[in-house]
Simulated scan of single mutants.
Amino acid sequence: MRYFLTVCRLQSITHAAAELHVAQSTLSQTMQGLEEETGLNLFLRTGRHIMMSQDGQRLAQKLSRLLVQVDAVEREVEDMAHRHQRVRLAIPQQQAAFLMPRLLSEFHAAHPEIPLDIVEPYGIEAARLVRDEKADIAVVNSDEQSLPELRYRRVASHPICFTVWEGHPLAARGSISLAEAARIPLAMLSEEFYVTRCALHAMSERGLSPDVRYFSPHLSTLYSLVRHHALPAILYARALAELPGLVALPFAEDLRLTGSILTRKNRQSTRDQRLVIQFITRQLERSADLT
């Protein structure tokens, strides 16, 4: 269509071929093929000059209007692609404490052209956001494949720890048993968090009832309780994110959570999304090697 309209405007195969950066013979064959396909005599030829026939004029008018619509669609597609360059991440608080500083510093420095939209929901809610296509990627502390619409990529496992403050009587210990922890007044995240459900389940299987004095939906509250020597807490090791003043004691029973990266099964990941996934995978695997 664009070739035909260019020939019509310039009334010259030679000049049109030069403007379109195609061989003159190719353009001539294309115009002949168009006439054969449509069954119309589109041009009146006089030597090297050509003029549009009446049929050619009518076709040019229709194609001009059609190309305006095609151009509009192309612009809309470009706008959609530009909006979709933003990578939407759902990272629960415990993973966010470790990943956020690295995403906003190292990843942004390496890929400033990739904007990130990051929310910090509960682990279960993070998975649902991906399922409902409100997030492109979720990073959760569980490989429970409870949503069949999602692809679960297991990345690395990290210990669940009994967290105390420096100077606490247990701080010098290398580990602690679940039975010992159950007898100590402590704080935990609310049961929407995988770490809490995992720890409570492990204690329940052993007939233990922990002395939980406070459940909180906020990781910062648990940090404050431990730092102010109010209560120890059970936390995922990555949630500590090298915070000073805290001592993490792994459980003797080797209680661990497996980090997983979630995406939708029926969606092709973009290049930007793959770069984000590769970065997060490297960070989690590297930290697992150091654990």
Rank of each mutant, 00 (worst) to 15 (best):
Leu150Cys: 04
Asp132Ser: 03
Leu257Glu: 08
Leu27Arg: 11
Thr221His: 04
Asp136Cys: 14
Val212Ser: 13
Met51Lys: 05
Phe162Ala: 13
Pro112Arg: 07
Leu170Ala: 13
Asp143Ala: 14
Ala17Ile: 01
Leu290Asp: 14
Leu44Gln: 06
Pro244Asp: 05
Ile184Lys: 02
His15Cys: 04
Leu290Ile: 01
His49Asn: 09
His15Ile: 03
Ala182Cys: 00
Lys62Glu: 15
Ile137Asn: 06
Pro148Lys: 12
Arg65Pro: 11
Pro121Asp: 07
Arg264Gly: 11
Ile176Tyr: 02
Glu166Arg: 14
Tyr236Trp: 13
Ser287Thr: 08
Phe279Lys: 03
Ala182Tyr: 04
Glu191Gly: 03
Glu74Thr: 12
Thr14Asn: 10
Cys8Ala: 15
Gln61Asp: 15
Thr46Ile: 10
Arg86Val: 07
Leu255Gly: 03
Arg286His: 05
Val276Phe: 10
Val140Pro: 01
Pro244Thr: 08
Arg88Trp: 11
Ile160Glu: 05
Gly207Trp: 01
Thr221Leu: 08
Ala90Val: 10
His229Glu: 09
Asp132Val: 02
Val139Leu: 12
Leu104Tyr: 13
Pro232Thr: 01
Arg88Lys: 15
Ala171Pro: 11
Arg131Glu: 11
Leu116Arg: 02
Val73Cys: 06
Ala172Val: 11
Val70Glu: 13
Ala97Cys: 00
Ser12Phe: 11
Val87Ile: 13
Thr270Gly: 08
Leu59Lys: 00
Gly207Lys: 10
Val119Asn: 14
Ser216Glu: 08
Glu253Leu: 06
Val22Glu: 06
Arg227Pro: 01
His82Asp: 08
Arg128Cys: 00
Tyr194Asp: 10
Gln54Ile: 05
Arg286Tyr: 10
Arg153Tyr: 07
